[in-house]
Design a protein around this nucleic acid. Sequence first.
DNA 1: ATTTTTAATGTAATCGATTGCAGAACATTT
DNA 2: AAATGTTCTGCAATCGATTACATTAAAAAT
Lengths: 347, 347
Amino acid sequence: MSKERDVTIYDLASELNISVATVSRALKDDPVVSKKTKKRIFELAERMGYRTNHFARNLRTQETNTIGLMIHELNSNFSNAVLLGVEKITAEAGYDLIITHSSESYEKEVANARNLFNKRVDGLIASLSFDTRNYDHFKLFADKGVPVIFFDRVEKDGENTVVIIDNYKCGYEATAHLIEQGCKRIAHITSNLNRNVYSERCRGYKDALFDGGLSFEESLLIINDLSEEAGISSAKRVLEMNPMPDGAFITNDFVAAAFIKILKEHQVAVPADIAVVGFNNDAIAHLIEPSLTTINYPGVEMGEVAARTLVNHLKGVSNIHQINTMIINSGLVIRESSLKKKSNAKR
Amino acid sequence: MSKERDVTIYDLASELNISVATVSRALKDDPVVSKKTKKRIFELAERMGYRTNHFARNLRTQETNTIGLMIHELNSNFSNAVLLGVEKITAEAGYDLIITHSSESYEKEVANARNLFNKRVDGLIASLSFDTRNYDHFKLFADKGVPVIFFDRVEKDGENTVVIIDNYKCGYEATAHLIEQGCKRIAHITSNLNRNVYSERCRGYKDALFDGGLSFEESLLIINDLSEEAGISSAKRVLEMNPMPDGAFITNDFVAAAFIKILKEHQVAVPADIAVVGFNNDAIAHLIEPSLTTINYPGVEMGEVAARTLVNHLKGVSNIHQINTMIINSGLVIRESSLKKKSNAKR
DNA sequence: ATTTTTAATGTAATCGATTGCAGAACATTT
DNA sequence: AAATGTTCTGCAATCGATTACATTAAAAAT
């Protein structure tokens, strides 16, 4: 309740009969201040409950000590994992984090970018929304020299620094694995092919089909929004196909789980009738039955790498303009849902 | 790259040959400024790309426009739901959000509180860590008149405003439901009983047992940290009991899912041999098999209510000191995992 | 035409820290 | 003891907005 004025460096200075300049320097641990004076200042600061006024400091130094995070959604395990990784690094480095999410809308993404720009973030970590086609809203940052790092959903052929996994390789591996298990008709359930993540996985899928001597069929490619409903409806669509596919590569574990559930309800056996490979390695993957073969996609690491790269750049330790692409390890985790041949499933 | 100076109100003022005071007032849409002048100022601001310097403003007004969120973890569906709700409301209201998490450690919680205090958040939304016993770190805020709202894990018998569900009722309902299904030996798997959420649920469990003519057995009460490993180990412990329980009320869906998986692997049927009720209504609950009966715990709503209450207080619309407790609706969602008697399961 | 009232704008202090430059205090060398 | 070099501290301007108070301009009343 007591709203007394906060303690400032002026209070400390006058209490000790020294100048604010010395106090300011001491608090930053500037070596130019003598140990003796520093000690007195630190002790008094502690005793009087001094707190830095970040606004005064930032006003003066023209730095905000704030990093912006633009994410497409906040409700998936993946995005939460990324957030966890980013938060860890930025907090350790003493940066505040402002989080925005676009709900997969281009308009909101633009508004969020503008907002973060006006808040003068020192740097930006961003993943694009589903339908973003235009990247002008990031130009603002480039023009001001504010570093931007993209992760996961990134601009194709951009010159920005990006943190990604090898989506092509993952798509290829997933599909090749299904082929190896004897699948001849492999459906691919994915999302908007304008986004690099999906187009690359799809390219991997197609190349693996080709290399496996199978041909790509347009009708086996199902594109939706990766919601749970999408899993249900695409399962129904698959059930009506004639002949039915004998394998499915689904770019999201949750969708895969819903998909499998519907198949089971219609007496279609997984993996015997249809083998399934998901994507992300969410916790759900090993809890459903059959346990889900999937691609391990380490969101926490991705967040950490993106954040660390940005922080290092801001601190002058490294320079993101020298780094174009950072690829995070990822790969197939084989479980029961894809094993037509009885072999050793990992858990 | 071009790091030209930012446009300030001084630039606008000198460009139009008026004073900064007028510009400042106009930008705040102060009615005292004439419409004509305002128009000129807004247009010029737009044209020159003026951005408010929040640091200068906050320094002057002594408000930070920032709300702190202290959460025990950042990796559960529940906490993410809360975050989603909080973020939505605070962003709409124009507040920045600083997020901290304690990783369930009291020490980190104290450090986070101190950090947010030093950052001078205008208000605080907090959920306690597992082992927090002492609440002194919140006194700082009270002393400065900074409003604090607790949610989910709250201080027992505190005088703070809290946003919770009726954990007692939920515990009672879950247990009563199992009894109604014919269970006679009901295990309860939960966590640290110093936290209100778990102690209240446990109290509901005990009272329901009593009202159902069953007696409480210490050996059926399993306390752990609600990790997946905990689900596995408690399942093993249950399997070794003799006689085995015929029902289990588990205060976390993820733990329940892992628990059920282990039971199934040991040829124990759910719900026939052991009926299970979880807690939270995570998405996983309806995707596993059998689908999981659980308590619906709406995290998004909880976050929204907490944030809205705080924001309203900060804007002077309402006063949290007049409100002590806000209870969010919650309740049993019956699915397959608990239905020993064949009846109508909802999905 | 003069006074009064109202509306619009301006002056200048203020918020709390940072930092280039100047100067004082002290130690070292000749 | 004087000169030189080091180390430490202080002065004062600055960052960009806000706002109490003063002033001017315009409109209304006399």
